[in-house]
């Protein structure tokens, strides 16, 4: 079965991203496909590689990047939400004249249509948020 995932909160204030990560891992283990993980609202903050949690805490951003690489998962950060919150890839850096970028490996920035498409293409859309 194909799953679409929407994550509405950042990595650390809410449990949402952690729950989603555990759900996605379990779904993959059960042989399901993850069509896309779409990060919206403050969820875009899951996509910055500048995240540096203390050593005794888990690095959720790295966990997403590693999961994406291992299982070829499409991690999409909403462009409008990302612009508001300062999540930038090379393209956005150039377009908006920023002095750097911070997108984490395995993430890409794209439009809200990617969320609707995930709803259309997936058998189930599961939303995690606050």
């Amino acid at each position: 079965m194909k799953f679409g995932i929407q994550i509405n909160e950042g990595p650390y204030t809410h449990e949402a991203s952690t729950t989603a990560l555990n759900f996605v891992s379990a779904a993959i283990e059960a042989g399901h496909e993850i069509f896309r993980v779409f990060f919206y609202h403050d969820g875009v903050n899951n996509g910055t590689r500048y995240t540096t949690p203390p050593q005794d805490d888990r690095n959720i951003v790295n966990a997403w990047s590693e999961l994406a690489e291992k299982h070829d998962i499409d991690l999409v950060v909403c462009v409008a939400a990302a612009q508001r919150r300062g999540i930038v890839d090379e393209g956005e850096q150039e377009r908006n004249g920023k002095d750097g970028n911070n997108i984490a490996p395995g993430f890409r920035i794209s439009g809200l249509g990617q969320l609707i498409e995930a709803g259309i293409q997936s058998d189930r859309l599961v939303v995690f948020g606050d």
């Binding site: 555990n22 759900f23 599961v126």
Partner: peptide, 10 residues
């Protein structure tokens, strides 16, 4: 558990 969560979603 989480796999039960997945099964419920399925």
């Amino acid at each position: 558990d989480y796999s039960g969560f997945v099964k419920l979603a399925v």
